[in-house]
Amino acid sequence: MTTDTLNGPAETEVPRHDWLLYSGMGAVGLAAAASSYAALQDLAMRTGWWPWLSWLLPLTTDAYAMTAVRVWLGHSTRSTRARAWAKANAIGAIVLSVAGNAVDHAIASHVIAVSWPLIVAVSAIPPVVLGLLVHMAHLRALPPAAPASGTPAAEGRRQTPPPAMAAPPLPIPPAAPAKPKRRQPRRPVTDGGKRQALSPGPTDEELIEAARERSAAGQEPSATWLIKTYGIGTRRAGRIRDAALDSSAPEPKSADESTTEAELVLTSGES
């Protein structure tokens, strides 16, 4: 048996710091930062930035790239969405820095001229970068997403023993039948069961006069108009219409006139 078997599992070897690697990375980083800084500052001045503020453009671009890479590769980032967003922003920041350097050198070589779309694009870099970084900070504060089913973490959770089964619920007794509702007795009629007398309608003389006025106004006194206006029957409406149109026909007598004529006949008979 080996010594590792007797003394337990062998400890993992901690990687040693490679100072030569770190030195090379630092030298390349300083050279790249200096050259990119100078090109981006020159681009800001060419597009109308004030000289005492032109250094903010390279600082914004390089700080944006460094922050995005830190969130992307840092162990403190727990949200998968934040890590994916930081990765996309890191690549975008590097592409933005490369494009800015290329545009500045192209302008210096008189390959392209400074135009208004270029001025708008360079001026929009600071606010756009600020909005992207704020969104990145919000995503970084989110808790890690729950593992989906089928992942090793979810399978490990399934190995926990299930809780004890609860006792079955007791049967619910049937509810008592509802009692039928008693009907309320009808209230007695207070007016003695008599119907209220309807108000008398217009007489035939009034209807004929109204029909004649309508005819004098140039409108036809039809039976339909009489029925809808005064609510009379069909036969009476036809009679009123004919009497109104026939001016020579005698008008229907009222009840008082009929009574007076009957009294005169009886008086003459008695004499």
Rank of each mutant, 00 (worst) to 15 (best):
L53D: 07
E257L: 00
H138Q: 03
H105R: 14
V128T: 15
L21H: 07
R70L: 06
L56A: 11
A166L: 12
T203I: 01
I172M: 13
D42H: 06
I125K: 05
P168T: 05
E220L: 06
D18K: 03
A164S: 00
V28N: 13
L170Q: 15
A84D: 03
E205Y: 00
P169M: 00
L130I: 10
R182W: 08
G238D: 09
V120A: 14
A154I: 05
R186A: 02
T229R: 06
E270P: 07
V189T: 11
A211S: 15
R212D: 00
L130S: 12
S79L: 06
W72G: 05
E13P: 02
A90E: 06
L57I: 07
L132F: 10
T234M: 11
T3K: 01
V114Q: 08
P180S: 15
D62T: 03
D246S: 12
L59P: 00
R81Q: 10
L133T: 14
S271G: 14
L57P: 10
R81P: 04
T229K: 04
P171S: 09
I119G: 07
P9Q: 05
A166S: 08
P9E: 09
E220G: 03
H110C: 14
A249S: 12
P252I: 02
P51T: 10
L266I: 06
S248G: 11
S79V: 04
E263D: 13
V265S: 10
A106D: 05
A113L: 03
G233W: 05
P200C: 05
A38I: 00
A63K: 08
V120I: 10
I94Q: 10
H105G: 03
A86W: 02
